[in-house]
Design a binder for these strands. Structure first.
Lengths: 115, 115
DNA sequence: ATGATATGCAATCATTTACTTGCAAATATA
DNA sequence: TATATTTGCAAGTAAATGATTGCATATCAT
């Protein structure tokens, strides 16, 4: 269980995404997180470890409890990667929309213009 | 090799992200993609299959070639998931910045105000 | 028709993943 | 101090992942 450990890998798992959603607003301790899931506490503990290792989570010891806090800024890598393609595809959609509107005005201009 | 197959899972692999980057601008055929990587053509073929199964890729048969075209709109799911947290953390950053600026103007107001 | 090209499919394999159960250690609480 | 609570660590397991090699098939060029 010691290999690739990056943010993309971390958020690939739906349980881990749920954990992030659960602690995004305010820190939550380990047992409280585990209580929300069907799987064992150990399984959640492992997910927390993975999230911690890739920097998406930081842990504050508080007596015998451990508060898990989301480090949302670490999602920036994903945000930027997706953003570039998001811009690409939305600009294409706009171009298509513009084209279709031109077509609607002068439906046959492309077929006739060359002949 | 037949289980979870969603966009988050698909982009978890760096090779698959590289493939998406390679075909984002225009369609490319299978061998041309495979030629860019160290791994075997079969390995790439499997990655293409995974990308296809989650809708990030569509294939157009063109004679004996298969043109792989990126379906960037399928990244929307990821975009929206990250976006909500991006907004959360940037608004926090702004709040922090505002707070620090207030502190700079009246450095001790919080400590003195109550005593 | 013949050979080269583009690609898929199947079998196989080493690692990694996501879990589980059991046990130990530290910290609260009665 | 005795006991309950919170959590980590270790060993074990089934399934998924990423990759390889070998063989088959369709299409294009000569």
């Amino acid at each position: 269980m010691e290999a690739r450990r990056d943010v993309f890998q971390a958020i690939a798992d739906p349980t881990r995404r749920a954990i992030i959603g659960m602690i995004a607003e305010q820190p939550v301790n380990v047992n409280a997180i585990a209580a929300q899931f069907e799987v064992s506490r150990q399984a959640i503990s492992l997910h927390l470890k993975i999230l911690t290792e890739c920097g998406l989570l930081s842990i504050k010891q508080q007596g015998r409890e451990r508060l898990c806090e989301a480090r949302l800024d670490k999602l920036n890598e994903v945000h930027e990667w997706v953003q570039q393609y998001h811009q690409l595809w939305t600009s294409r959609l706009k171009a298509l929309k513009g084209f279709l509107e031109e077509e609607a005005k002068q439906p046959t201009i492309h077929k006739k213009s060359k002949k």
